[in-house]
Design a protein around this nucleic acid. Structure first.
Lengths: 216, 216
DNA sequence: GTACGTATACTCGCCTGCAAGTAATCGCGA
DNA sequence: TCGCGATTACTTGCAGGCGAGTATACGTAC
């Protein structure tokens, strides 16, 4: 049985209202102000749906609703005990388990053969640039927040570590491509120059097949 | 303007029908047989929606539709030139760009402070076990397919490399927790033992805030 | 003082994603 | 030979996600 409110935005909401009661817009600004928007894109449409669902399942409840002048009414929510429990349990689950994820880059790599090798190499080079920029930006962030307890910055450290590995791996692949040491490079190039479809590909389709899902 | 058919399942479909015309169910089995299900969970409901959308946007087209006996009719699709172009362009984009992603573990880490340190450590230990299993499974897979050209296995190599980095990082964090060298550990433990809410947390809320989105 | 941009605070409604249902056929065990 | 579980092949329906819209108030520059 999955979480009653599965959207990860709900986790961010719980993690915010646990601090003090707030109304949705305030939650959003809070999330936004703090780089939480980096952990979890804030979709305005989703926010209100998620908050409503959290309330429906009694993870949060209405404290009161004020109105300042003729502005739209602000409904203030507070976390419940069930909500606090959900927040902890969910966090625990996210940390403890590693269900298979499907990053976009992995999808791209799995289709790499549709690009001619030159183009693939160019794309990888572009990616390296982007990765470098992202790394620089995050390092700057860490430096800037040297006074914030590390506990609140672990996700950033994690991302840096993982991205560094990605950079290393991509550089390795790229090197194999540019030095022509990647096995099968010639064949790969050939069937892009001549016919569209890989001969190996077909063979692979039949044979290489049946790799079972690793249940990761 | 985003892709006309944004679901990544559509990429897998294109990558499959590019080989030869097929009907949806066949595509699914194909994807499933090959560990493609590992790259992209196959949701049966989505498959037909995605195929219909691909057809609507003329990335694929109906070749013919057969019927064997009174079985439901099988509609066979073939890729179009536009579809082939889309497949290449999309793959290129996926490889070349690295928009911010939001892995579940990152979300969990960003909420780590809601767990008492002991529980956090336990969760991390669990994760390490799972990661080890996943790694073993994938290594076995690679060994088993030693005859398949590497080009078709790069995604697996990538995942292995990245997961290894994750393991290292998690082990590091765990070590800091178990050897009590993680800065602020005492404080962290204290406010879980006493009051619920972190004092630092509140301070962080006000001050530590304003980390801008790194546009990764 | 008034016009225009920006911040506040949501609501609406489409469309996608997908779990579950449907229904025929095949295989095979007893 | 006849039942029944698996396989084949889709369809339906609904909920959740989210872009786009709405409407007021505030600041500030001219």
């Amino acid at each position: 049985m999955p979480r009653k409110v599965a959207n990860l935005l709900a986790l961010a909401v719980l993690g915010t209202v646990v601090q003090r009661p707030m109304h949705p817009y305030e939650i959003a600004s809070f999330l936004r102000a703090r780089g939480k928007g980096a952990d979890m894109e804030i979709k305005w449409g989703s926010l209100y749906t998620v908050v409503r669902n959290l309330a429906k399942h009694e993870f949060i409840e209405v404290v009161d609703s004020q109105r300042a002048g003729a502005r739209p009414e602000r409904t203030i929510y507070r976390i419940t005990d069930a909500g606090r429990a959900e927040l902890r349990d969910w966090t625990r689950e996210l940390v403890a388990t590693a269900p298979p994820e499907h990053p976009r880059f992995k999808a791209g790599l799995s289709m790499l053969s549709v690009l001619p090798p030159e183009e693939a190499a160019a794309a990888l080079r572009e990616r390296l640039d982007e990765l470098d920029q992202a790394t620089a930006a995050q390092r700057a962030l860490l430096a800037e927040h040297a006074d914030v307890p590390r506990l609140f910055l672990v996700e950033i450290e994690y991302e840096l570590a993982v991205r560094e590995a990605e950079v290393t791996w991509v550089r390795g692949l790229l090197a194999e491509l540019t030095t022509e040491t990647f096995p099968g490079l010639a064949a790969w190039r050939t069937w892009h120059a001549t016919g569209e479809i890989a001969p190996e590909h077909a063979e692979l389709a039949e044979r290489g097949a049946h790799r079972e899902e690793p249940d990761e």
